[in-house]
Computed example of a mutant assay.
Amino acid sequence: MKQLLVFFIFAISPIISLADAPEHWQIGLQDPATPIAQGIIDLHHDIFFFGIVIFFFVFWVIFRALYHFNYKRNPIPEKIIHGTFIEIVWTVTPSLILLIIAIPSFALLYSLDEVVDPAVTVKAIGHQWYWSYEYSDYALSDDQIIAFDSYMIPDDDLELGQLRLLEVDNRMVVPVRTHVRLIITAADVLHSWAVPSLGIKCDAVPGRLNQVPLFIKREGVFYGQCSELCGVNHGFMPIVVEAVSLEDYISWVSTKLEEL
């Protein structure tokens, strides 16, 4: 009975907990925190369903052909060289499946570029090998702006419960349920700002500003990494986004402004 209870707890733990960082032996996707991430996961599940159906159908056709039309069961080969009906079926059916997949994928693709009247703008700059963030909305002057670097915490400095190769000394802080515009660029070489739970993966290109919308639905800490090979320490420039309530965000901004 005790073993059954332990198994049940481990079985439902992925359901009752939110995986905003990679876990050991993880197979599925991380829990979404934005509408975009939810849309990406739903599209993945829909396409995966069609893939499973097609796989088993093709497997059944191959197995049936090998079983019924081998040289022992059918020594005299059939002389069918053309079938108009089957030609139409296997041309129209894949076209309809692709059309069903294309419509939601195009809607999701366009929503990735839609920036809805952002209340907060954050600029993320990729460096070899760390990220820096700027909050230009609260600039007191040209040289007084909320800006900080975000370095990975070395293994020797990690505290109990912190994630190896994923924790940083300064997190990017944003409010929940608020439209945020994220401007991404790089100072030296190509980087990529990617956080799976947020459904964002955007290239950071030197001399170019890319922007993506961000609307986080719940509070939490979300982990990501640079996803563009950018040099020898490419694997040591993680991304940590902390989503807090609007009141806590205002308090954080006030504290940062006092430090200027």
Results as ranks from 00 to 15, higher is better:
177 R>C: 08
154 P>C: 00
162 Q>I: 01
187 A>P: 11
164 R>F: 09
177 R>A: 12
192 S>C: 15
178 T>L: 00
137 D>V: 07
177 R>T: 04
155 D>T: 11
159 E>Y: 06
185 T>E: 01
181 R>A: 11
136 S>T: 09
154 P>H: 02
188 D>K: 07
177 R>P: 02
152 M>S: 13
140 L>H: 12
140 L>M: 12
181 R>G: 07
170 N>M: 03
160 L>R: 15
177 R>L: 11
150 S>P: 00
164 R>I: 03
136 S>A: 15
189 V>T: 12
156 D>W: 13
155 D>F: 07
151 Y>C: 07
185 T>V: 00
191 H>L: 06
187 A>S: 11
163 L>V: 05
171 R>H: 15
136 S>C: 06
154 P>D: 00
156 D>S: 15
163 L>Q: 09
172 M>W: 02
141 S>V: 04
172 M>N: 03
145 I>P: 03
181 R>T: 05
156 D>K: 13
147 A>V: 06
193 W>R: 00
165 L>S: 14
167 E>W: 03
153 I>S: 03
187 A>F: 06
166 L>W: 09
191 H>A: 01
159 E>V: 08
163 L>D: 00
162 Q>G: 04
141 S>M: 09
159 E>L: 12
153 I>T: 11
179 H>S: 08
184 I>R: 10
153 I>N: 01
181 R>K: 14
173 V>T: 10
163 L>C: 07
142 D>A: 12
181 R>L: 14
192 S>V: 11
175 P>N: 03
179 H>M: 08
135 Y>A: 09
173 V>I: 14
151 Y>M: 14
155 D>L: 05
186 A>V: 04
174 V>C: 07
168 V>F: 14
143 D>K: 12
146 I>P: 05
136 S>H: 10
166 L>Y: 10
188 D>F: 05
137 D>E: 02
147 A>I: 09
186 A>P: 01
158 L>C: 00
149 D>R: 15
158 L>Y: 06
142 D>C: 11
192 S>N: 13
147 A>R: 15
168 V>H: 01
173 V>P: 05
165 L>T: 15
186 A>R: 04
143 D>P: 09
189 V>D: 10
157 D>F: 13
146 I>F: 02
152 M>W: 11
168 V>D: 07
161 G>N: 05
144 Q>P: 04
170 N>P: 10
143 D>A: 03
148 F>T: 09
146 I>Q: 02
159 E>H: 15
153 I>M: 05
186 A>Q: 08
163 L>E: 12
141 S>D: 09
136 S>E: 14
162 Q>V: 07
156 D>P: 05
179 H>K: 11
183 I>L: 14
135 Y>N: 06
